Each structure stands twice: as structure tokens, then as C-alpha cells.
Amino acid sequence: MTDDRTRRDQVRRAWDAVADDYAAARRADGPDTALLDELAADLPAGARVLDVGCGDGRRTIETLLDADASLDVVGLDVSRVQLALAREAVPAAHLVQADMTQLPVADRTVDAVTAYHSVFHVPRGEHPTVYAEFARVLRPGGYVLTTVGKGRSESVRRDWLGSGHAMFWSTPGAEVTKSQLEAAGFTVEWERHVDDPLGSTALFVRARLGD
């Protein structure tokens, strides 16, 4: 049986291996970036945003800064190769390599957390820990905007995108995820299905932390 630490190492190695090809294949725009524009409009000037699973930064960090250049955006990823790409693409961002189950961020210092296509690479048994970490670092009234797996599933794709490495997905499904967010202290504001630039449809949820 593969343990959670091994899964995390597999995910990190796979992202390191495909970072350049994935960045080239995924456009920096698309309908899901409009959700970031909406979020930026609801934040005060100078707000701090933590982008969890930032990748090369072009779709999330860059979109947020284009919407409001005053934002203090921190990009977090497990992949050092992805972070190197982000450092080139968005030099104004602060970047850190870390695991989302243990965020290296002080309590109540963030106004919003974004997590695009990232939480479902963590074993679903650890998702409540991830949402508790989001709640810990957010100020009261802060937002989380995250991609959510639509159905309960867990899978591994071998030789993902020709990388020679396995990629792992794990989700308890949308209803359980919303319940987990609520248990962490969030109120779900909305959920939307949005077309993804790679040709699929993704489910996004925006939730707000209680005061």
C-alpha cells in the first residue's frame, strides 16, 4: 500500500517533470481566470493572497496582479521547477516551496486563498487538514476560491503526460468537500462549473471564513 508521504513525493516529482510542457499547453487566460478578477474586486487594496499550487503563476498570480497591482500575492507549490517558472513569469510575487497540509504562514495574515487544480492532488483523507490550514492563515471574513472534484474518486495515471512519473488524484466529491469547508468555519457563497482551457469543465467553490 502506498502511504500519503509517498503520494506527495510522486506528485512533486511528476510536476517537476512536466512543468515546462504543462505551462506551454495551458493558456494563461480562460473563463476560470474571470473568477480571480471577481475575487480581486472584492478585496481591499494591498490585500494579501495566498495562491496554493501556483504552478508557473501565469494563470493565477499574474491574473490577480493584473486585476489589482497593489495585491501582495504569495505563490506556494511543492514543485521547485514550477516555482522557477513562476519566478521568471511573475517576479513581483513572493514564492515558497511547501506542502499545503502545513502552510508556512502565520495565523490570520491572509485575506484570500486561491487553490486552482491543486487540493485534489492531496489524499482525500487529508483534505480536512488542508481546509483547516486555509482557515488558520485567513483573517476573519477571508475568502477561499478552490477547484473541487465533482465526484468521489481516487486514481493514479502512470506516465502522466509522458513524464515517466505517476500523477495522483483524490477527491471525496463536491458535497463532502462543501461539508468539510463548513466544518473548518467557512460559509459557501457559490459554486460554478467553468470551462477549462484544456478542454474539460471544472467545478469551483468560493467560501468565506466566519468572523
Rank of each mutant, 00 (worst) to 15 (best):
R5F: 01
A92D: 12
F204H: 15
V96A: 08
G210H: 14
T114Y: 01
F134I: 13
S70D: 06
A93M: 07
R48P: 00
M167H: 12
A28Q: 09
R108S: 15
E38P: 02
G30C: 13
W169P: 08
V205L: 14
R48H: 05
A106M: 06
R58F: 10
P123R: 01
E133K: 06
G151S: 06
A19P: 09
Q180T: 12
R13V: 06
V176L: 11
A93C: 11
D51L: 01
A28H: 12
G125W: 00
M1E: 11
V144Q: 02
D111H: 11
W190P: 11
E191T: 12
V194H: 08
L83C: 06
P91F: 02
H94M: 09
G149D: 05
G149I: 10
A24S: 09
R59W: 03
S200N: 09
L138F: 05
D107T: 14
M1Q: 14
L145K: 03
G149S: 07
T201W: 05
V18W: 01
H193W: 10
G75H: 00
V96N: 04
K150N: 05
V52C: 12
G199W: 06
M100F: 00
A67C: 05
D77K: 02
G53Q: 03
R87M: 07
R59A: 10
L209M: 11
A207H: 09
D4E: 05
R5D: 12
Y22C: 01
R157P: 01
I61W: 04
V156F: 11
